[in-house]
């Protein structure tokens, strides 16, 4: 009975193969069947390498199981695994996503010597005085004067940006990029934002309006939904 039902379905697209794995059968069965399927359909020596997407449906796999599947698929180097997708994630992971994408609103003055660190995006209503520092894992929005240091995407998100009503910072930091104020006395700028420019490979400051086409997805949560 069980054998007749197809546990693994392969569909070819222009970009490669997609492997649909049945979401209710036991993991052991998947492993067995996968061995057979891969042996059958593996490209021959002279054919090009094919990239494979694995669709798990509502099945949850641990990191170790994912690695095992990847090993089976890629064992004779004719397939490469592009991604393993599942519609379910663990609760902790979901909470972590949420935490990293919430906006924390804070209303106070960050004075010299003070550091405000938040997980997720920071909405600060108030000033960052010279010598003060704000750090967020997501974006930083400041309704006030930024005179001190702002560090957005502190755990490595280069897509993060810093927006402020008035900007004359000591330093702007985004992920691992750092830029500092020029040595000559410069005037601050109103309603601008700092973001990483991929082409120039550095932080640039521009009008707030550019955000609407350079960073269309502001929320970290949506960003994660789209990119995993």
């Amino acid at each position: 009975m069980l054998d007749k039902k197809q546990l693994i379905t392969i569909k070819g697209t222009r970009d490669g193969l997609t492997l649909f794995i049945d979401e209710v059968c036991s993991y052991d069965l998947v492993v067995n069947e996968l061995h057979a399927t891969i042996a059958e359909s593996s490209p021959k020596e002279n054919e090009p390498v094919v990239s494979v997407k694995v669709q798990l449906g509502n099945r949850f796999l641990t990191e170790q199981q994912k690695k095992e599947l990847t090993d089976i698929i890629t064992k004779d180097h004719r397939f490469i695994v592009e991604s393993i997708e599942s519609s379910v994630i663990r609760r902790e992971e979901a909470l972590r996503w949420k935490e990293h994408s919430d906006i924390q609103a804070v209303s106070r003055v960050i004075r010299s010597g003070q550091v405000l660190e938040v997980t997720g995006d920071l909405l600060l209503i108030g000033d960052v005085n010279p010598g003060g520092k704000v750090v967020a894992t997501g974006n930083i929005y400041i309704m006030g004067n930024l005179h001190g240091i702002a560090h957005a995407g502190s755990i490595g998100d280069r897509q993060a940006f810093i927006a402020a009503s008035f900007m004359k910072p000591n330093q702007l930091r985004i992920a691992d990029y750092i830029s500092r104020a020029p040595d000559y006395e410069a005037d601050g700028v109103y309603m601008e934002c700092g973001l990483v420019d991929e082409e120039q490979d550095k932080i640039v400051i521009d009008r707030l309006q550019v955000l609407s086409h350079k960073r269309q997805v502001l929320s970290g949560f949506e960003r994660r939904m789209q990119n995993g």
Binding site: R111, S112, G113, Q114, N129, P130, G131, G132
Partner: peptide, 12 residues
């Protein structure tokens, strides 16, 4: 002024 700012932060 910078030091005053720091002190105000501590006083708060």
């Amino acid at each position: 002024v910078r030091d005053a700012d720091r002190i105000i932060g501590l006083l708060e």
